[in-house]
Measured scan of single mutants.
Amino acid sequence: KWTITVQGEEAIKWAIKVAEARNLDYTVHIDGDQAHITIE
């Protein structure tokens, strides 16, 4: 299990796209213009 933090709307969209493309189980916690994405 690991967490990445991305900043900015484009980076958030990209990170989610990558997680979905790899069929990963993930949760997103949005904090202002940052998102913390935890991959199970």
Rank of each mutant, 00 (worst) to 15 (best):
D25E: 11
Y26E: 00
W14Q: 14
A21L: 11
D31E: 12
K17Q: 12
K17R: 09
A15S: 02
A19D: 00
Q34S: 10
G32P: 02
K1T: 10
R22A: 13
D33K: 07
K13D: 06
Y26F: 13
D31C: 14
D25V: 14
D31K: 10
R22S: 15
H29W: 14
T3S: 06
G32S: 04
I37H: 00
G32R: 04
A21F: 07
D33S: 09
D31V: 13
A21K: 06
E40W: 15
A15L: 13
D33N: 11
E9I: 13
T27W: 08
A35W: 11
D25R: 15
W14G: 07
A21S: 11
I30N: 04
I12W: 06
I37N: 00
A11I: 07
V28T: 02
E10I: 11
Y26R: 00
A15V: 14
I37D: 02
T38K: 04
K17A: 15
E9L: 11
N23Y: 07
K1L: 07
L24A: 05
V18I: 13
K17N: 09
Q34H: 12
D33Q: 09
Y26S: 01
H29E: 13
E20L: 10
I30Q: 06
H36L: 12
T5Q: 05
L24G: 04
Q7A: 08
T27E: 07
V6E: 00
G32L: 06
R22M: 15
T38N: 05
I4N: 00
V28P: 00
I12A: 02
D33W: 08
K1S: 11
K1H: 11
D31T: 09
A21M: 12
H36R: 12
A21T: 09
E9S: 12
H36S: 11
W14A: 14
I30A: 04
H29M: 12
E20Y: 04
Q7L: 13
K13Q: 10
H36Y: 14
T38A: 05
W14L: 13
V28S: 01
Y26M: 04
Q34M: 14
N23G: 15
W2A: 04
L24Q: 04
A35Q: 04
E20S: 10
D25L: 14
A35G: 05
K13I: 09
A15H: 06
K13R: 13
G32E: 04
I4L: 07
A35R: 05
V28D: 00
D25M: 14
T3N: 04
E10Q: 09
I12M: 06
E20M: 11
E10G: 06
W14R: 14
G32T: 04
K13S: 06
D31P: 01
T5I: 14
A11E: 07
K17S: 14
I39A: 02
I4H: 02
V18W: 15
I12H: 01
H29Y: 13
R22D: 05
Q7T: 13
A15Y: 12
I12F: 08
A11D: 06
D33R: 07
V6M: 04
T27H: 05
V28N: 00
V18G: 03
A19V: 14
A35S: 03
K17Y: 08
L24R: 04
Q7S: 12
T3C: 14
Q7E: 10
W14E: 13
W14C: 15
T27K: 09
Q7Y: 14
E20D: 06
E10M: 07
V6D: 00
I39T: 02
W2Q: 03
I30P: 02
I30D: 02
T38L: 05
V18S: 06
V6R: 00
E40I: 15
T5R: 03
I4C: 15
I37P: 00
A21V: 05
I30G: 03
E9Q: 11
W14I: 13
G8E: 02
I16G: 01
G8S: 05
Q34T: 14
N23S: 08
D31S: 11
A19L: 15
N23R: 09
I37C: 04
E20W: 08
E10F: 12
Y26T: 01
K13M: 05
E20T: 10
R22H: 15
V6W: 02
T27D: 04
I37R: 00
N23I: 05
A15R: 00
R22Q: 12
N23D: 06
I12K: 03
D31L: 08
K13N: 07
V6I: 11
Y26V: 06
V28W: 05
Y26H: 02
E20C: 15
E10C: 15
V18L: 13
G32Q: 05
W2H: 07
T38R: 06
I16A: 01
E40A: 11
V18M: 14
Q34F: 15
T5W: 08
Q34E: 08
K17P: 00
K13P: 00
T5L: 09
G32F: 05
I30T: 04
A19T: 03
E9K: 10
I37E: 00
A11P: 02
T38F: 05
T3Y: 11
I4P: 01
A19H: 01
G8I: 14
W2V: 08
A11T: 06
A19P: 00
Q34G: 07
I30S: 04
I16R: 03
Y26W: 07
I39L: 08
I12Y: 07
K13G: 03
Q7N: 07
T3H: 09
T5F: 07
I30W: 12
Y26P: 00
V18A: 09
V28K: 01
W2N: 03
A19M: 15
K13A: 09
R22T: 14
R22E: 08
H36T: 15
D31W: 09
V28R: 01
A11R: 07
T5P: 02
H29F: 13
W2M: 08
H36W: 14
I4A: 01
T27Q: 08
K17V: 08
A15P: 02
W2G: 03
V6A: 03
V18H: 07
K13F: 07
I4V: 08
H36I: 15
D31H: 11
I39N: 01
A35L: 08
I4S: 01
R22P: 03
V28M: 08
Q7V: 13
H36Q: 10
Q34I: 15
E20N: 11
N23V: 03
R22I: 14
E9H: 10
I16E: 04
Y26K: 00
A19R: 01
K1M: 09
A11S: 07
E10L: 12
T3E: 08
I16Q: 04
H29V: 15
E40T: 14
T38M: 06
D33H: 06
I12S: 01
A35P: 03
I12G: 00
A19S: 02
Q7G: 04
I37S: 01
A19G: 02
N23E: 06
I16F: 02
I16Y: 03
Q34A: 09
A15I: 15
G8P: 01
E10K: 08
D25Q: 14
T3A: 05
I12V: 05
K1P: 06
L24D: 02
E10W: 12
L24M: 06
K1I: 07
A11W: 12
Q7P: 02
T3M: 09
G32V: 05
T5Y: 10
N23K: 11
E20F: 05
K13H: 07
T38G: 02
H36A: 07
V18F: 15
N23A: 06
I30R: 11
R22L: 15
L24S: 03
W14H: 13
E10A: 11
A15T: 04
Q34R: 14
T5V: 13
T27V: 09
Q34Y: 14
R22F: 15
K17M: 13
I39W: 07
T38W: 05
A35K: 04
T27C: 09
R22N: 13
L24E: 03
A15F: 15
A11H: 05
T38Y: 08
E20V: 10
V28Y: 04
L24K: 04
A11F: 10
I16D: 02
I30V: 09
A35M: 11
V18R: 04
E9C: 15
I16K: 03
T3K: 07
E20Q: 12
L24H: 04
T27M: 06
I12T: 03
D33A: 08
T27P: 00
A35H: 04
I39E: 00
K13E: 08
E9G: 07
G32Y: 03
A35V: 13
R22G: 10
T5M: 09
G32K: 05
A21Q: 10
R22V: 11
I37M: 04
W14P: 03
